[in-house]
Structures are given as structure tokens and as C-alpha cells.
Amino acid sequence: MLVGAFTGVAIALITKNFALAVIGAIVAGGLLSLIFAYLAVSRRGDQMVTGFGVNLLATGLTLVLLPYLNAIRTRTVLFPVIDAGFLKDIPLLGPMIFDQSIGVWMALILTPMSMWVLYKTTWGLSLRAVGENSKAVATAGLSVIKLRYIGVLLGGLFAGLGGAFLALNNIGFFVANMTQSRGFIVLAALVVGKWNPLYFGIACILFGAADALQLRAQAFGSVLPYQVYLMLPYLLTIAALAGLVGRTQAPKEYAKPYDPTQA
């Protein structure tokens, strides 16, 4: 995500082309995820450790390259806002719904789309199965390694896109470590969303709302200290882990490497 944000800003500054910037960010996220896929899938490394490794690499890499980025002093292109014309003038609902950038709309469209792919296509079925019982997938004649690579790569592509959105939606520049561990909060959202794409999307919106609340609490002053709102996603996660949302079942082989030689 961080690498996506960085690449997005860099390309946006250099080319002034919005589409190129977003595509660049997605590709950068994908490339980084391939490093992780090689370590975790092919080399069967511990996924926690390699995950942290790749994370530190992203932080370090963007920090090292940051001075070069700061040397360019122009304005970037931003995510264009979809102009809904008169609809924008509807009180309250107008600015809330009809004054959003295409990034927001992409998030709203991609969630049901990925859900459709996961549950209604052969390929989605295989992808879901490969995290549950890789041996069953292998005996069905499919390639576990290939599927897992694709799964990680897709995650990387989406993270790259997320990074581009974070940096280019309205700020238009890159700040060191600007993601502030949002990637890890996604893991929490998975638990709260019971590993279901629809609930997961709702959990993400909820977490986003908490973030928005704390920003406004800082800006306008609030009875409660703004840190309370910052705490909300974590409180929700703890509640979810304590079983308040019912049976949450992570995929059976979550973070487990696949070893084809093991009978």
C-alpha cells in the first residue's frame, strides 16, 4: 500500500497522467507481493515473518527514495470527482453521495464484484478452496502453487490501488509512513467481517467512519478525547474475537505453507 502510494505520487508528479499513476501504483503493489509470494509460497517461509520482512522493506524503500520525490515541486493530478450536476445540490445527501471521487465508487463496485467472482465462478471457488484444504485442490487436479501466487498477487494489486487512493484522492503528496498500519487494520476488519466479502466491506466502512470521527473530533473539539474514536476499530476487533459477532472461522490453512511432498 505504501509502495503503491509512493509510486502513484511519483508517476503523477512526473507524467501528470492520472491513469498512468494509478496503473503504476497497482503494478508496484503487485511486484512487491510477488516477492512475498516467492518467499511464502515457493520457499514455504513463515508467513508472519516474511510478511513483516516485506513490510519493513516497503517502509525502508519509500523512506530512502523520499528525498528524490520531494525534489520535484509541482502539483500532482488527483482522483477526478464525478460531477453529478444538479444532484450535488440536494441538501445533506448531495455532497455525501454525489460529490465523491471515482476512487470511492471503485471501492463500492469492486467489493460486490470480487464477491461475485469468489462465489459464482470456478476460479473463485478454487481460490477459496486453496486456503481451506490445499490437498483437496491438488487431488482435484489444480495447481495449488499457481492459485496461491494469484491470490497473493491480487492482494498486492488491490493494496497498490488502495495506496494510490490514499495519496492521490485529495492530498496529492506522499508522507513518510503515511499508511499508518492501515494494512494491519484490514486483518482486523477480516475478523470483524467474519471472512465474508460483504460483511468485510461493512466493517471497513465502520472502521473508516471511526477514523473520520476522530479527524472531526480534533478539528471541531468534542467532549470525548479524539483518541477514543481512534480506539474504536480495535475495540470492535476485540469484541469480534470474543465471539460477539458469532462463529468467525478463518480459512483452515490461513498462513500455512503448502508442501506437496507431505503425504
Partner: peptide, 10 residues
């Protein structure tokens, strides 16, 4: 060789 969290049909 069954995926426990999926239905029989899946």
C-alpha cells in the same frame, strides 16, 4: 479430501 467450510455441492 474435502473442504470443510464449503457445501457438498461446491
Amino acid at each position: 479430501m474435502l473442504v470443510e467450510n464449503m457445501t457438498a455441492l461446491e
